[in-house]
Amino acid sequence: MDIVLKNVKKKDFPVLKSLAKSLGFEITIEEEKPYDPEFVKEILEAEKSIKEGRGTRMTMEELKELCK
């Protein structure tokens, strides 16, 4: 069984870690990895250009043809 604790305060973590260790639980820490800043910049710029009307409209047939 897995238990996931979220939003644990840094001051509380050593207590929880000690408790888990004394009970024989395995502890793994997974830190969230933020998106690559360049990728986020590209997405935001693309959204902005679409809102400004600089996007390209395609029909489903055109899209399917493009993907062949």
Rank of each mutant, 00 (worst) to 15 (best):
D2E: 05
D2Q: 08
I3C: 03
I3G: 01
V4C: 03
V4G: 04
V4A: 06
N7S: 05
V8N: 00
V8H: 01
K9R: 06
K10I: 05
K10Y: 02
K11G: 02
K11V: 11
K11N: 00
D12F: 01
D12A: 04
D12Y: 00
F13R: 06
P14M: 01
P14Q: 02
P14H: 00
V15D: 09
L16M: 05
K17T: 05
K17N: 07
S18W: 06
S18V: 06
S18E: 15
S18H: 09
L19F: 14
L19Q: 10
L19I: 08
A20E: 04
A20Q: 02
A20F: 01
A20D: 00
K21S: 08
K21A: 09
S22K: 15
F25Q: 09
F25I: 03
I27C: 01
I27Q: 02
I27M: 05
I27T: 00
I27E: 06
I29L: 10
I29Y: 00
I29A: 03
E30I: 07
E30R: 09
E30P: 05
E31I: 08
K33W: 06
P34A: 11
P34R: 07
Y35E: 15
Y35F: 15
Y35K: 12
P37H: 00
P37N: 05
F39Y: 15
F39C: 07
F39T: 15
F39N: 07
V40A: 10
K41W: 03
K41Y: 01
L44A: 07
L44F: 07
L44E: 12
E45Y: 01
A46N: 07
E47L: 13
K48T: 11
S49R: 15
S49N: 13
S49M: 14
I50R: 03
K51D: 13
K51L: 09
K51A: 13
E52K: 11
E52C: 03
E52R: 05
G53R: 04
R54M: 04
R54E: 14
T56H: 08
T56F: 08
T56R: 08
T56M: 04
M58E: 14
T59R: 04
M60K: 12
E61Y: 08
E61R: 12
E61M: 10
E62Y: 08
L63Y: 13
L63S: 11
K64C: 10
K64F: 13
K64E: 15
K64A: 15
K64H: 11
E65P: 01
L66H: 10
C67H: 11
C67S: 13
K68H: 12
K68E: 14
K68Q: 14
